[in-house]
Design a protein around this nucleic acid. Structure first.
Lengths: 327, 327
DNA sequence: CTGAAAGCGCTTACAG
DNA sequence: CTGAAAGCGCTTACAG
């Protein structure tokens, strides 16, 4: 692989000038010189070594994303939007999949920090408790969920309480006498908020029964749990899921049990990924503003002075009605 | 951020020894010295700068993966398995999403090469024609599909011809008088092979009609096409899809059209992702050996002498029967 | 507008 | 077993 030195020699100039040409600065280069450099680089097939540049300039033009599970379509969609947002800012997105494991998540974070990413976007598998001591060695972090007070990370999220309340309200308005609430594990970000929101909605509908179950955020885990739940005496008339991923499992379990959606069982998802459009039947869901989350996260990392301290923003969500809730 | 120099000073030794401790070599360190170094590193919260290490050692302990679309569950599953395989070898997996775009794919490849990845795993959006001139500047590449002869990249794939033949044979045995074949775009890797395989199967079943359609590899594109196709006079009795992604769209279109699967329309997918378990109804599919592809790909990159030239391996697939084909 | 040189934070022969 | 020093390939003040 040719280096800047090789290019400089061939162009009859110095490595400094090669650097100025490839970075459009910080100093001007005579048009003729620039031409010679470009020419030489072309001939030698020169590609700047990004590592060396990063080491000396202190910026890597990269952003790390760590998600719990890349197979979860919500996180895949997030990755896709972040890819676009970082690309627009001439940065590279590095995606790390934690595989649902806290240690693997830590390893990724640590590895990204070692690689000197310019910023880190995190959806954690760990609970609030564990996130207090998140240490990122000076790299700015944006979490896409609530963060415990005192953390140095910024956060971007929807109001899970409001969202869950609206979702439950919608089910109440349909007249369903019972609502099953399916969330991720107790302690994981958002779980409490979902329950609070649902209870708020039901406070005005005293005849509505609610029942809560938790599973890992996996369609297979959700399906397995629902097999039992739907087979029991007091199976719910409707199920609100904190995530789309779990809702997909519910749809399958209903089908297995011979229950029609929405006539026997109404179902709602909690992310609003595009996948909801093509499930059978299409899935009503709360929708998180994925594109907005992505562009705001990148802005926060790249344009904000970290010394100003963390910022916590709440973004808007909406409810997309499709067949599965009875609309 | 503390550097090796800070640690060395505090431990009363040299940066060389700090390096030996953190890399377990290449030279031995006295137990007492090692202790002091570890102690000092702990106190300072030292994390080696991976960039500097990479620049000087010439290896980054990272592998790049470029996929057409991270939202496609087959590619997400691949990423997940590769993550595990690279982790086992103490390497980091960097995931790049090409967003279905050839330029974006090129940008990712180029960026990974600039970052000096130790190897590159590629699923390309480009057709065979364009891949002839793939230039990776000495970085070893494994493609997870066929590569044009003459390319320097190795490849790992299943036999699409055999797979498609078996799938079509299965549909023929069910007695379906017509098979719709839904593939990715003409010219993209595998498209021809799928058609050849299906034709081979039908050669022995002269009364079976086949008809071919192509869409982008997207469930939404597939759904849109199927809306028309299923509404037409000669809609197929069964559809074999080259990808799961497209099959998901077909299931939805069938539901929209009021057609029961498999009684009115049998459907088969082409990747065999786990998602097929929980569609409504569960999807019969050809299954690609994802875990095997992943571990073999990493082996090829890390254990093979690149000067030996590219190698082309065909891995085993199988057919997983579920409800959607009529089993 | 351009060159010579120091420095980014590591690794690794070269000496001892 | 350990230290002093060169070098990885860039960037960027310092001079001119």
């Amino acid at each position: 692989m040719p280096t800047a030195r090789d290019v400089a020699e061939r162009a009859g100039t110095s490595t400094a000038v090669v650097s100025y040409v490839f970075n459009n600065g910080p100093r001007p280069v005579a048009a003729a010189t620039r031409e010679r450099v470009l020419q030489a680089a072309e001939e030698l097939q020169y590609r700047p070594n990004v590592l060396a540049r990063a080491l000396s300039a202190g910026r890597t033009l990269s952003i790390g994303l760590v998600v719990p599970h890349i197979r979860n379509p919500y996180f895949a969609a997030l990755a896709e939007q972040l890819e676009a947002a970082t690309r627009q800012r001439d940065h590279l997105l590095l995606i790390g999949d934690a595989g649902g494991d806290a240690d693997q998540e830590r390893a990724h974070i640590s590895s990204f920090i070692g690689r000197k990413v310019d910023g880190l976007i995190l959806v954690s598998v760990r609970d609030q408790q564990a996130l207090i001591s998140l240490d990122t060695g000076g790299v700015p972090v944006v979490a896409l969920h609530q963060m415990p007070p005192g953390s140095s990370a910024s956060s971007l999220s929807i109001s899970s309480v409001d969202a869950a309340r609206e979702a439950a309200q919608h089910l109440v308005e349909h007249g369903y006498e019972s609502i099953g609430v399916l969330t991720g594990p107790i302690g994981s970000p958002g779980t409490d908020e979902h329950l609070i929101g649902v209870r708020q909605a039901v406070a005005h509908a005293p005849h509505t029964r609610i029942e809560h179950r938790a599973t890992p955020v996996s369609r297979y885990a959700a399906r397995d749990l629902l097999r039992t739940w739907l087979g029991s005496q007091n199976r719910p008339r409707s199920v609100y899921c904190a995530t789309d991923e779990q809702a997909f499992g519910v749809l399958n379990a209903a089908w297995e049990a011979g229950l029609a959606v929405p006539d026997d069982l109404a179902v709602m998802g909690g992310d609003g990924t595009q996948d909801c459009e093509v499930t059978v039947p299409p899935l009503t869901a709360l929708r998180r503003p994925v594109a907005d989350l992505a562009s705001r996260a990148v802005e926060l990392l790249l344009d904000r002075d970290p010394s100003e301290g963390p910022v916590h923003l709440t973004l808007e969500h909406d409810l997309v009605c499709r067949v599965s809730c009875g609309c």
